[in-house]
Nucleic acid binder design. Structure first.
Lengths: 280, 280
DNA sequence: AGCTATTTGTTCGTATGTATA
DNA sequence: TTATACATACGAACAAATAGC
């Protein structure tokens, strides 16, 4: 017969605490007993209690606040990011006003630090495509693209998102030479990117994808996320020529606990209430 | 002027190690030096190193294996879950064969444990709606629904997903009485749920939503996920009557590092290669 | 404003257990 | 079997953030 190998103590305690949280033994927002109290309660040491709490925080169930206590994490309603709408706007167009969807531009902490940088929100920067950017646009690494970005904040809920866009550079500019000797002559203004691409390649096709990953680095602060236990939702919309060639893609990064992506089969009926959702 | 408050040592080390990983200083799959070595390398203690490593594991960058070492987590290609297709099949229909999409039924660890349970995959169980299930179907908690579930495994990649479905019980059965004295007379077989609902309420409308959360409990084992640092991708497809009344919804839970949800604007062109994607 | 009590955060040393090669 | 690696656990001390007076 199989020996009953007992689980680690911190795991047992985590299971007990998780049960208490899921069974509404503690209400959302409510503080748990202090670590010292729990340690004596479960006849163990503080490090063991902390390990159990860290586990539940990583599962998104608890939030730990230095000097204040440990709390059951409230689960806010998720705002909608509506995909698959018939019309596709250039959200990174400098002339685009997010206010009509209930959003406003914001400056995030990491931007404030590098204020002297060359890149600024909604400006267009020529750079080389690397990694997944190159893959999505189906070009070699090193191919030139135009990068634009912005941070938006939802006016009511103050939830933030990060938007970025990559346009194949040779679609909007003439590039001479190679490497560092490259010369770029832009002949399309960022205000006209989408109109220009549609004239050149229309009718356009679009694909949308949604995935999730764990955030790291400055993303937490920039998007005002919980430092642990919250995934990052990534929505990508790719513009394709009628022959299937990728021309541009827009990426939205949003805190996974505050947003969901949704689509409806019928666009003529039942628009979810007014400014509630972001259409992308 | 602002005092430079130094970050915690484990945080500094985590930043350094993260840089090494992201800069491909260590290759995916490669082992990092042992904890003891790193501790002496950074002139600190093993617990501090472990804290830094735990942070990066939570960010999905490292995988720690007991007795083997710490490794850079390989990022597998994500399989597609294609949403918004014109046809909507009942994936929980006992007659539905997942093999035609390249999948097979599997029994997961938590099922094996409760083998004597009344619920079995692809059987229909009458139960009461609670929490988000009730919200999605827009019914009061306690309203009866029919619950079905299954676990599928992708034949090639062995990636697993969890499917479940909830049908409003009064659509497929007659319910007499209240509470525990309730009597249920089912007059539609699970094989005919979708056809029956379409006859009663067609033409149908559909919405799809995608969100992410952190998994907990047995989900890790059941879906064969990394125990930390991987979000759970949740895809929900809701069947609505033409008047907007929710009748059923299907939910897919998938490991966030191995799946993404995608949709295309044009269904007539460029189906992504054969059996590659799950259409939902 | 300052002081104090409370609570979580960081770090170390140390010991022992368990999985893997 | 042995060596190596990670896992668990305890105790202790001090730092830092917060709340209340």
């Amino acid at each position: 017969m199989a020996e009953e190998k007992e689980a680690a103590r911190w795991r047992i305690i985590a299971d007990l605490l998780r049960n208490d949280v899921l069974e509404d033994h503690y209400q959302p927002g409510q503080a748990l007993p202090g670590e010292a109290f729990l340690a004596s309660e479960y006849a163990t040491s503080r490090p063991t209690i902390r390990k159990a709490i860290a586990q539940l925080a990583g599962e998104g169930l608890l939030t730990v606040a230095h000097g204040r206590g440990t709390f059951v994490r409230p689960t806010p309603d998720r705002r909608l990011i509506l995909t698959g709408w018939p019309d596709h706007e250039d959200l990174l167009n400098p002339a685009y006003d997010p206010a009509k969807q209930g959003w406003e531009h914001v400056t995030v902490p990491s931007e404030a630090e590098r204020a002297q940088s060359k890149v600024t929100p909604n400006s267009a920067l020529f750079m080389t495509a690397e990694g997944s950017r190159a893959d999505i646009l189906a070009v070699r690494r090193g191919t030139m693209v135009v990068y634009r970005y912005a941070y938006w904040q939802h006016t009511k809920t103050r939830a933030r998102i990060h938007l970025s866009s990559y346009v194949l550079a040779d679609q909007v500019a003439t590039i001479r030479g190679e490497g560092s000797g490259r010369e770029i002559e832009s002949h399309v203004e960022p205000e006209d990117y989408y109109a220009h691409l549609e004239r050149q390649h229309g009718p356009l096709r679009w694909t949308t994808s949604v995935h999730a990953r764990m955030p790291y680095g400055e993303t937490y602060e920039d998007l005002g996320m919980e430092p642990i236990g919250t995934p990052l939702l990534v929505v990508r919309r790719v513009m394709l020529s009628q022959h299937g060639r990728p021309l541009e893609f827009t990426e939205i990064e949003a805190p996974g606990d505050r947003f969901e992506a949704a689509s409806v089969s019928d666009h003529h009926t039942a628009e979810p209430g007014g400014l509630a959702a972001l259409r992308v």
